[in-house]
């Protein structure tokens, strides 16, 4: 399974997003805030742990987090760049 697909799956499962369908997520759309997946600041720090757990990739602080959490695509790219390091 590719990184993006796996990423969507773990976000839905680990954040218990029952109402979100994996196939209808807008990959370029915002993850947080209005029009996003309905996630908030607590989800953001939880997402850091989720990424670490499933992909072994660290996000050092929330300044970095805000940068890479802009969309599924930006997050996928960051994970792919940093996997296996």
């Amino acid at each position: 399974m590719d990184v993006k697909q796996r990423l969507k799956q773990v976000i839905i499962e680990d954040l218990a997003l029952e109402d979100v369908c994996i196939d209808t997520i807008d990959d370029d759309g915002p993850i947080f805030g209005e029009g996003g997946l309905g996630l908030d600041s607590l989800d953001a720090v939880e997402l850091v742990v989720i990424i670490q757990k499933h992909f072994g990739v660290q996000i050092k602080d929330m300044a970095k987090g805000r940068e890479v959490f802009q969309s599924l695509n930006t997050l996928t790219a960051y994970i792919q760049e940093n996997m296996g390091q």
Binding site: L42, D43, V45, E46, V49, Q52, K53, Q58
Partner: peptide, 13 residues
């Protein structure tokens, strides 16, 4: 089971 960095902020809250 996984390490200190895997502490869940949601569970902690």
């Amino acid at each position: 089971l996984q390490g200190d960095s895997f502490a869940s902020p949601t569970l902690f809250s």
